[in-house]
Design a protein around this nucleic acid. Structure first.
Lengths: 367, 367
DNA sequence: GCTGTCTGGGAAAGCGCATTCCCACTGCCA
DNA sequence: TGGCAGTGGGAATGCGCTTTCCCAGACAGC
């Protein structure tokens, strides 16, 4: 038994396919009540399911939203995905998922695939990069996006615009105030951690999200009259945080900052504590794990702050100081801004994203 | 500029659309080298992207895999989704996401929507339920799935078969040995926690995953000669775990099990500890948070074990005893089993899922 | 040299639906 | 009663592609 078609339904109901189409899918023209009933009943009895592909082909639009993330298992993206999914449901669309590990080449592929499926809009979450090795990929991605937009597609990018994107028609950017928030975080930490030196665990250079947060943090420190923090670079995930954490743990011990009176380091005053800012929560957790594995305690031997306020990590102890980002809203906003309702379009770029510095135990005053 | 079509490419290359189709998309018939080159070049210069909808319509298959989860932001589902995504990529397909909060009615909707899009296969993750209020929904869902399968669709369900599903053609179940693993967990805990009483924090009655794990755990206790554990029911998420944790915390204090010598409870021996088994990690974390908020310490005042071994929770302290489940593999296996390669089909239901009891600090020997 | 078999390309028929255009009919006003 | 707008249904076209079928030419065997 093959899936039944509109034509079959029409025949069973004794009407033309045109009429059947009109009653089963919202058309401007409403057939008479009796006919409508007949058609609907026929559809029911046949278990008719409209073929979305054919519909899409006929009206060239698909009811699909493409979502591009680095990794759906990363709680950051998962949270955004939830928002996207919700907004999509509101719009009566479905979401098509693509994961790319952040590689622009893969992202370009994904955009092409979405374009092939005639997705109505595309949401790109996940940090843009300006690394040299990505130059070519970025250009390709930008070109693909341009083409997609020119063909009437709507694109929403979370965070930074894609490097080199030119079209403005249908191209939306959901700004995330990473830099400002990092500045605020630094200010608050500078105030509460008077006696700490600061160090930053960042992602690879060229990753915008990471760079923005680093820049913002440094600015906050400078505003508070603190010297710039040293920056440790590693990968933008837990492993990267852990790795950097190991390095720092050794340093802390060597400097005798762990209360065990190490041999001391000429450059570092053992009396001063160390406050670590990891550019995202997952890295912060990794760093904390590294310190712990080296026998160090947070916040006693070092304090740590992250960024994102990942929900799953809220029960982590010591509670992680971080910057709360409304991830789910971000996904929702991005999806809505790419909904492409020409009317509401210019009316207002939807409510801006606001975060909030959230200090918790991991950077609490040492007793 | 509208997206260019095959016909345009063909015209530019000076061939028929049929030929263009044959060279651009793998057909059995291979046109001559020179012609192929001409076509490919024309396609390139036009930036041709095949319309997947039209392709799908023409060959009635879409290259789509439908994935149904309760909540994509839940790390359990996110991990499975990653596996699905990966396997999908291997197959050159894309994944369509639907979240349903576990409501059979929504799941039925999702299946219908997938069917409408002519998804090649559907993966259903997330526990089935046999609750009375879901009876109708389950029946509808089963009917929808049956229809989908009869129309040639492939379905893979993680865990339990959908209640009432009848078709076997194209219907796959990825068995997760929840019960057996829970039994093993109980055995190991019974051995290491000789002096503990056991209590189970379960999900709502009728949720198969939860029920299986409870049943298995009780069996393990029985095998070890322990009396059955009391069961606290609450919702299958962190909040549920927290709620149950609050209840337990009060009880522990009342029973003077927290070392503070409470007034004691006739039924409970204050000398005995309490070992809490939460049917999933997230609930376990919630329960632990509740205990902590009541001033209780794990594993000192109570021990806790979970189930799933969620990656994001591995850095939780005290490290959570749990049962490791290869979530990502599960997603992959499900996706592959629904790949529908009739050849490999009967050859072997793909490698079974195996978990592993993983005891960590949260159930460690009291000193 | 002629027929028979390939080979490779093109014409055309859908895939299932939306939609435009057309037509028959109703009811209204003049 | 004739004409006209308005209403509601159907025929037909096309969305972009695949695929079957057909046909012209190449080639081999007799």
């Amino acid at each position: 038994m093959a899936a039944s078609t509109l034509t079959e339904v029409a025949r069973l109901a004794g009407v033309s396919p045109a009429t059947a189409s009109r009653v089963l899918n919202g058309s401007a023209r409403k057939p008479g009540q009796d006919i409508a009933d007949r058609v609907r009943q026929a559809a029911d009895s046949l278990g008719y399911i409209p073929n979305a592909q054919a519909q899409g082909l006929a009206k060239s639009s698909s009811g699909l939203i493409g979502l591009i993330v680095h990794d759906i298992a990363d709680p950051y993206f998962a949270a955004i995905a939830r928002g996207v999914q919700e907004a999509a449901r509101e719009q009566g669309r479905m979401v098509l998922l693509a994961t790319t590990a952040g590689a622009p080449a893969d992202e370009k592929e994904a955009v092409a695939a979405f374009a092939a499926r005639r997705a109505d809009s595309i949401v790109i979450a996940g940090s843009r990069s300006s690394r040299a090795e990505d130059t070519k990929g970025n250009a390709d991605l930008a070109a693909e996006l341009d083409r997609y937009c020119r063909n009437g597609g709507q694109v929403a990018v979370v965070g930074h615009p894609v490097v080199g994107a030119e079209v403005t028609e249908g191209y939306h950017v959901v700004e995330v105030p990473n830099e400002e928030l990092a500045t605020s975080l630094a200010s608050e930490l500078a105030a509460s951690r008077q006696d700490d030196d600061f160090v930053i665990i960042g992602g690879p250079e060229g990753l915008f999200t990471s760079d923005d947060r680093i820049r913002g943090f440094q600015k906050g420190l400078a505003d508070a009259g603190r010297p710039p923090a040293e920056i440790l670079r590693s990968s933008f995930n837990r492993a990267g945080g852990y790795e950097a954490g190991v390095t720092l743990a050794e340093r802390i011990k060597a400097a005798g900052r762990d209360g065990q009176r190490g041999e001391g380091n000429a450059n570092q005053d053992p009396a001063r504590g160390l406050c670590i800012f990891a550019v995202n929560d997952v890295m912060a957790i990794g760093a904390a794990a590294a310190l712990r594995s080296k026998g160090l305690r947070v916040p006693r031997d070092a304090t740590i702050a992250g960024f994102d306020d990942i929900e799953t990590l809220r029960d982590f102890r010591p509670a992680l100081s971080t910057v709360h980002l409304p991830l789910e809203d971000i996904g929702r906003i991005a999806t809505r801004s790419a909904a492409g309702s020409a009317a509401a379009e210019d009316a207002a770029e939807p409510s801006p994203v606001t975060g909030r510095v959230t200090l918790r135990r991991s950077t609490e005053m040492a007793s």
